[in-house]
Simulated scan of single mutants.
Amino acid sequence: MPRSKRDKKISLTKTDRKGLAWKQRIIEDIKFCVGKYPNIFVFQVQNMRNNLLKDLRQEWKRNSRFIFGKNRIMQIGLGRTKSEEVETDLHKLSKRLTGQVGLLFTEKSKEEVLEWAENYWAVEYARSGFKATETVVLPAGPLEEFAHSMEPHLRSLGMPTKLEKGIVTIYSDYTVCEEGKVLTPEQARILKLLGKPMAQFRLTMKCSWTKSGGFQLHVDDDINDETLADSAMEEDEAFEDNNSDDD
């Protein structure tokens, strides 16, 4: 009789990992995009959401390309110093690839992109660590929007709930969060269950580079563009040597 495959176990040691080939592909993609697109932006993400970034990639795919990956890999693609850079002054973009940032390669004009970024935002649910933008208080009484099966879960999140005649009910006033205070994981889950988004997904254009105009800074910082990043290169190479199995 053939052996059942329903409970077949797969060793995690056999799964693929993002190694040198994956890193090299990102680097080559960036170099290709530098040659293809006339304008490049370094953007910073507020309240990152993968699904919204995926939507933007789909919306802009006709004449643009978003690349969002490990900063040090993107830095290598652009060139971290004057001697490495693919085009003049691209190392200035590379220096600003810090934090939660990405690259936008586009055929759209600089003015068009900056205006779009200024006005674009999407409402999202806040995560733990986010500061509440308002105070939310639930008065004692029934919560008819929740099925009776949700009551144990609501109680586990700290809400003073019980079932009364099959209806989820709060038996005392409950403050979910207070304006200006950092949300806990439980508070963030409750706000999502209540359908109360508090965060905004936004992109801020830190700086840009155009083939016709070169580098331009759009958000002030304390980076010295005249100083080469040789020390940073040495530190990064040492990091790679010591952590070659981590990626």
Score class of each variant (00 low, 15 high):
124 E>I: 12
27 I>G: 11
93 L>M: 10
132 A>M: 00
166 G>A: 05
220 D>I: 07
180 G>A: 11
222 D>Q: 14
42 V>C: 06
12 L>D: 07
5 K>Q: 04
77 G>R: 02
19 G>Q: 13
144 E>P: 11
232 A>S: 05
203 L>N: 03
222 D>F: 15
98 T>R: 12
164 E>N: 05
116 W>Y: 14
182 V>Y: 07
53 L>E: 08
192 K>A: 09
101 V>G: 02
51 N>H: 13
139 P>T: 00
188 A>K: 00
119 N>I: 03
119 N>A: 12
206 K>H: 07
191 L>V: 06
204 T>D: 10
114 L>W: 04
22 W>S: 15
2 P>E: 13
39 N>A: 12
149 S>R: 13
244 S>A: 11
110 K>M: 06
228 L>N: 05
63 N>Y: 04
98 T>N: 06
10 I>L: 02
183 L>I: 04
109 S>W: 03
53 L>W: 09
20 L>Q: 14
97 L>N: 03
245 D>H: 06
188 A>D: 09
86 V>L: 07
246 D>E: 09
27 I>T: 13
31 K>E: 15
92 K>V: 02
61 K>V: 06
144 E>Y: 04
184 T>S: 15
109 S>E: 12
36 K>E: 14
150 M>I: 05
3 R>G: 00
49 R>H: 11
66 F>C: 00
185 P>K: 03
109 S>F: 03
124 E>W: 03
209 W>Q: 07
138 L>K: 00
56 L>K: 12
38 P>T: 11
230 D>V: 08
97 L>F: 04
16 D>N: 08
57 R>T: 08
86 V>K: 15
138 L>W: 03
233 M>P: 01
145 E>L: 12
121 W>S: 15
228 L>K: 02
185 P>R: 05
114 L>N: 11
53 L>V: 14
54 K>E: 07
113 V>C: 12
85 E>F: 02
103 L>C: 06
207 C>Q: 01
1 M>C: 08
19 G>N: 13
152 P>C: 11
180 G>K: 09
61 K>W: 00
92 K>T: 01
22 W>M: 12
201 F>W: 10
218 H>T: 03
158 G>R: 10
209 W>E: 08
231 S>L: 05
213 G>H: 08
114 L>E: 13
37 Y>H: 13
237 E>N: 08
197 P>G: 11
141 G>Y: 06
101 V>R: 10
140 A>M: 06
197 P>Q: 09
160 P>Y: 08
69 G>K: 00
161 T>L: 02
43 F>I: 05
75 Q>G: 15
35 G>E: 14
144 E>Q: 12
220 D>K: 13
122 A>S: 13
60 W>A: 04
84 E>A: 15
38 P>K: 14
121 W>L: 09
9 K>I: 11
151 E>F: 02
139 P>I: 00
218 H>E: 14
90 L>C: 01
232 A>D: 07
185 P>G: 07
140 A>Q: 10
44 Q>C: 00
104 L>Q: 06
185 P>F: 02
190 I>W: 04
96 R>A: 05
207 C>I: 04
17 R>F: 12
58 Q>R: 12
30 I>W: 02
129 G>T: 04
90 L>A: 01
